[in-house]
Design a protein around this nucleic acid. Sequence first.
DNA 1: GTTTAAATTAAACGTTTGTTTAGTTTTGCA
DNA 2: TGCAAAACTAAACAAACGTTTAATTTAAAC
Lengths: 209, 209
Amino acid sequence: MEYSDKQLQILDVAERLFAEHGFDGASVRDIAKDADVNVAMISYYFGSKEKLLEALFIRRVSEIRLQIENTVQNNALSPMDKIYQLVDTYIERMVNRQHFHKLVVREQMLRKESPVCMQIIETKKKNQELIRSIIKDGQNQGAFKNDVDVPLMMTTMIGTANQLITTQHIYRELNNLQDMPEEIFQENLKKKLSQHLKTIFKAILTYEA
Amino acid sequence: MEYSDKQLQILDVAERLFAEHGFDGASVRDIAKDADVNVAMISYYFGSKEKLLEALFIRRVSEIRLQIENTVQNNALSPMDKIYQLVDTYIERMVNRQHFHKLVVREQMLRKESPVCMQIIETKKKNQELIRSIIKDGQNQGAFKNDVDVPLMMTTMIGTANQLITTQHIYRELNNLQDMPEEIFQENLKKKLSQHLKTIFKAILTYEA
DNA sequence: GTTTAAATTAAACGTTTGTTTAGTTTTGCA
DNA sequence: TGCAAAACTAAACAAACGTTTAATTTAAAC
């Protein structure tokens, strides 16, 4: 799908407003206003508000799909390093696309049967298979434990990252970081989160229970 | 605050519908219908939809506050066992009050400056202080590492639990558990989650990085 | 039994919602 | 230049929204 500048503008604004106020909380008029287009253009281009949400998801999900396919091709890396690289890819993506991931957090618990949710599930399945294959390699090499719960491991990675990203204003307050400049805070977030998840994964994958 | 049966009915239905469709997605008419009361009764009792949400939060937050104060009083337990007990308390609460915790997940990222969010932050601060004191004990006894990031640790606990609870239908599908009876699945959820988080916490608190 | 307050109702209030219409302007091509 | 298609607009649409009103029923107190 190729979009004009105006369509992209609508998609970007919608993504932000949906993330900030929720799908039902952001009106098409608000979106049109912020995107500097007439209200009717949203129906004209995307059909409906619901379809706008779907289009928005398709855009990001295909972006993610490309990233997944290009991830961890380097066979020179050890299984553990592959996992580490995957963690960094994940964090980078989630921090860089915060608005979208807030949307995901909400929509995956609301519209359980919608096309939007189907896309999320498909993407998770792909991700899970990728991780599972890496872990199997590690187990065959004797580097990893044999009983690893991959879905739970993913849940911790995604859950921890989501929690930190969606409630970063609370995290700032709990750590007295209100005065830290936004950009530096974001970089700190990535670094801390990355190190934290790697420690956890190392424990899950290698230490005996 | 003491509520009549009818008021409690409204609060329960509102909690469920807010969790299922979001605050803006659930109308006062839907709530009134499901709670078997006239629409006007909601304004009559609670003042407004927004105030209804606040009342709902106050009810659960005070419930949680009581739980926190009664937690980990047993000084015979080792620091690690205290942490373990805290994890179980947390999971038990979140699984038993799923609707409310879905609400928390959403509202803590939307209404950043609202009274509702203030309550969440206050509760988190209390929780954090409790955990911090336990960890300090463990460090003084030489049982725990000295560099423990308590907020990040909490983020992983809450984030993992939230992620698993709010997307349990996806978790079921990823693990081919669609046919497992609901009740058994919920029990499994608690057990798995408990064991998983304890493993992680043990690693974070004791193994050297 | 009468009185007063609380509980409850159906209806209406004024907004806002997402979407459509009908008309106008702009664009690209012959 | 002329013309059809696409882009765009302001206005109107019906439906749904949260809330209020005014009237009625129920409950409690004296």
